[in-house]
Amino acid sequence: MHIDSIQNGVVIDHIKAGSAMKLYQLLHLDRLDTSVAMIMNVTSRKMGKKDIIKIDAEIDLDLDVIGYVDPKATINIIRDGELVEKKNLDLPKELKNVIKCKNPRCISITEQELPHIFVLTDKETETYRCKYCEVKGQ
């Protein structure tokens, strides 16, 4: 399968296979007025299989969201067809309005405009817990 390379934009590479759609949704890429290519299940020497997202414009991406979905993904900034910047990620310590608490007893369900905040409580197991009720994020 052939996908054209981009001249100016962002490539999110080395995404864990199967995670690109989740990233597409959480980054709200459907709202962009530009071409977005999602390439899934590509053969990778390092990873076996991986996903790639190519965005045909240099936009600001929420790196916390990408780090949460896959901290091993890489961000490549492309200008005039050249790779000008490469960013590596880490698990963010806190997520704000990325995922929502599903505990019906949590104050974040009912309180007006309260941000949904999740805190990284265990880096090894990549566990995030709601700041208010401490229930695990899903």
């Binding site: 505990n103 007893r105 949590c106 104050i107 974040s108 309180e111 208010y132 009720c133």
Partner: peptide, 10 residues
């Protein structure tokens, strides 16, 4: 005291 978890933090 509030029935919702996290209300005191808010």
């Amino acid at each position: 005291r509030h029935p919702k978890e996290g209300a005191a933090l808010v």
